[in-house]
Amino acid sequence: MTLAVFFGCTFIAFGPALGLFLFTIARDPLRIIILIAGAFFWLVSLLLSSLIWFIAVKASNPQDEPLQKGLLIFGVMFSVLLQEAFRFLYYKLLRKAIEGLVALSEDGCSPISIQQMAYVAGVGFGLMSGAFSMINLLADSLGPGTVGIHGDSQLYFLTSAFMTMVLIFLHTFWGIIFFHGCEHRRWWEIAAVVIMHLTVSGSTFCNPLYVGSLVPSYLVMATAAAWAYVLSGGSAQNLRRFLLCKSSAWLWQPPENSSGLGNPSLLALPQAEPK
């Protein structure tokens, strides 16, 4: 569908991720490393889950439609579980990495906290997931044709782009919630992330009834966003202050809503660097 659609869909799908990367990750090399490693972990989980699905499909009868549909559903669910398993593995790895960083640092403090790592890992997962969802669509969107000759919906590219955007956000928030749950041994947070992921992936089976997949996904994203915000030290009061453009001079008050562990600022820049 030509260049206009190509750029439009690219910006829709990857615009917010680009903003997150440019302003919060790009300046710190350590965060870039964690981002790329996180993307790689997601890639490996996709490799394994697609291998399983591929073997299952090749071993089955290609003419049997309900079986193929069932295999697809199984494949998607298996992939979700495998991705969350790799998220856990990555958490374990990053935990070990923090010990190493503490040992290497001059003042005994790690230059980056586990919450910051959680956020960056989430963005890494999201970016790689978005790339795999969107790149081949973008490549085909450069040609002169649009989807529809076999009766599919014309809005295929647009809805895919919006779905990719919401998925990148979701992975970011799930990273924060998941790592928080692992850190504080709150297994129900981990379970909630897995259930949310399964819900969103499952809702895509409603396609091409796009309202059935996009609306629930955006609702889940709003929920996850609020939850992650609260877990990162946010509160309704902070939000009001931000929106009313107040300054940060009042932050020395004992925060009434802070979570029990006092999180440092998630997105703040070099505050956390070793002196």
Binding site: S232, G233, N238, S248, S258, G262, P264, S265, L267, A272
Partner: peptide, 17 residues
């Protein structure tokens, strides 16, 4: 405005565990 949005802990020195 990250410092407005996210409350810093009571001990400003503790940045990580």
């Amino acid at each position: 405005k990250a410092d407005v949005l996210f409350s810093i802990p009571q001990d400003p020195g503790a940045v990580a565990y």
